[in-house]
Structures are given as structure tokens and as C-alpha cells.
């Protein structure tokens, strides 16, 4: 069964249609990359799936269950999102402990006292960070907290919106390794939005190239590694990121 399936989805912000007629299937346990320039609508797709961009038509379903437009707790427990900017996505006055316990409290689950340290350990956070505030952590540590928070409800699907583009290369490597390990350990399905193609090559199984709100090509990641994309725009994008400077 497909973990995520989108059928003829149009997404709009007010009068502007941002994504048009998008259909995608992501298999369970797969990591699917969504790439494209800014403004191509790739983040918007994730926002529609989580319910942050409610103005869509078409069909979005997870594990065969169609998604409604209202806030849905069951849905939230199944599918969580990690945002680009770890500086902006954590509450500045909430300790790590509070941020990680909140999803459990909302869903009326207990056991925060054991689950929080467990999850911190799984995400490579030292236990002494538990009662610290975001400003006392580095960027990479904050992103680990954001990932840990997303995993507190044991979701099956993680939506990653540029999870490493605000981080240094050396820290990026740590977070990418973490994501790869968590996916293996917890059998997660990822959709990864990024404009960094080498990251897709490292983490993903398949990718879709988006341009102006449409998917122009879906290909296995081998096509990216061996420069065997077929659509001219996809080739152009690969070319550009392989060789950014030479004219």
C-alpha cells in the first residue's frame, strides 16, 4: 500500500494557484525527494499534506485513508513535519522537555517521563539538555530537538522541509546520518523537500522535480547519480547544481 498518495491536487493561496494537478505516490518505507527552485511549490505540497495550506482540491490520502481538511488528531499522530529553520520552529520560552512532552499531552498520552529521555537519546541529544531553552542550544542541536518532537507520537510518515539547509556542512552530515538511521530503526516514510540535490542523492530512493507548480519528472535516484534524467529542465537543474559557477 502507498503511504502517501496525492491525486489531481491543486493548491491555492487566496487567488493564486501554486500547485496544479499534482499526482504522487510514495510507497511505505520509501524516502521521496521533492526538488525544484524557490517558488516551484514544493514546500506547499508538504503544507497541504499536514493541513497548513487548507485551500486545496483533489484527493490526499495516507495509507488509503483520505485526508479531510479539518484538524485531525489521528492524522497528526501518523504524519509529522520538520521545518527548515530550527531557530524559528521551537518556542523560545519552552524547554526541550516541554517541547517534547507537549505532543503527548495534546494526545492524552502519558509516560512523558520515560519517553522524553528515550527520544532524546534516539536523536543523539545528551540528557543534560533536557531542561535547556532553545537559545542555549546550537543550530544542529535545535534541529535534533525538532526531529525528536516530530517523532514523539511515533508517526509513520515524516515530512522534511529543507531540514539541513540552515546548518553548516559538518552539522548537516550529522543530521543526515541521524535521519537515515531513524528511518531504518523506526521504519519511517519520508518526503524530503530540498534544493540541494546531493542531499537527495544521499538520502532518497526516488525524486520528483517540480517547476512552476507542476511535477516535470519522477525518477529513481540512480538517474540523478548518473545524470540520466530525461526532462530538459531536470537536466538543467542537475547541471546547475553540479557546476554552479563556471559559465
Amino acid at each position: 500500500m502507498n503511504a502517501i498518495s496525492l491525486r489531481n491536487v491543486d493548491i491555492a493561496y487566496g487567488d493564486t494557484r501554486v500547485v496544479e494537478d499534482l499526482s504522487l505516490d510514495v510507497a511505505e518505507g520509501e524516502c521521496f525527494g521533492l526538488v525544484g527552485e524557490s517558488g516551484s511549490g514544493k514546500s506547499t505540497v508538504l503544507r497541504a499534506v499536514t493541513g497548513l495550506a487548507p485551500d486545496w482540491t483533489g484527493e490526499i490520502s495516507l495509507f488509503g485513508q483520505p485526508r479531510g481538511k479539518a484538524i485531525d488528531r489521528k492524522f497528526a499522530a501518523l504524519c509529522q513535519m520538520v521545518f527548515q529553520d530550527p531557530y524559528g520552529s521551537l518556542h523560545p520560552r519552552q524547554t526541550v522537555d516541554a517541547a517534547l512532552s507537549e505532543p503527548l499531552a495534546i494526545h492524552g498520552l502519558g509516560g512523558a517521563d520515560t519517553r522524553v529521555p528515550e527520544m532524546m537519546a534516539a536523536c543523539g541529544l545528551d540528557p543534560r539538555f533536557r531542561f535547556r531553552l532553545p537559545h542555549q542550544l546550537s543550530g544542529g542541536q535545535r534541529q535534533r530537538v525538532a526531529i525528536a518532537r516530530a517523532l514523539m507520537l511515533k508517526p509513520k510518515i515524516l515530512l522534511l522541509d529543507e531540514p539541513t539547509s540552515a546548518l553548516d556542512v559538518s552539522v548537516q552530515a550529522e543530521i543526515l546520518n541521524l535521519l537515515k538511521r531513524l528511518r531504518r530503526e523506526q521504519k519511517l516514510t519520508y518526503i524530503l523537500v530540498t534544493h540541494d540535490l546531493p542531499v537527495v542523492s544521499f538520502l532518497c530512493d526516488r525524486l520528483a522535480v517540480m517547476r512552476q507548480g507542476r511535477v516535470v519528472e519522477v525518477a529513481p535516484v540512480e538517474a540523478l547519480r548518473h545524470n540520466a534524467m530525461t526532462h530538459p529542465y531536470a537536466r538543467e537543474l542537475v547541471e546547475k547544481s553540479a557546476n554552479r559557477v563556471s559559465a
Binding site: 559538518s170 537515515k180 547519480r225 547544481s241
Partner: peptide
């Protein structure tokens, strides 16, 4: 050297990226 190695490449096949 560590910094260079930690950057993923376009034709990435390493299972894990080396960390500094």
C-alpha cells in the same frame, strides 16, 4: 579533510557520511 568528506556528493553511495 573532514569538512570535505562530510559533504554529500551528487553520485552519493556511502551509507553514512563521515562526521568530524
Amino acid at each position: 579533510r573532514g569538512l570535505i568528506a562530510s559533504v554529500p556528493r551528487m553520485d552519493e553511495t556511502r551509507a553514512e557520511l563521515p562526521v568530524l
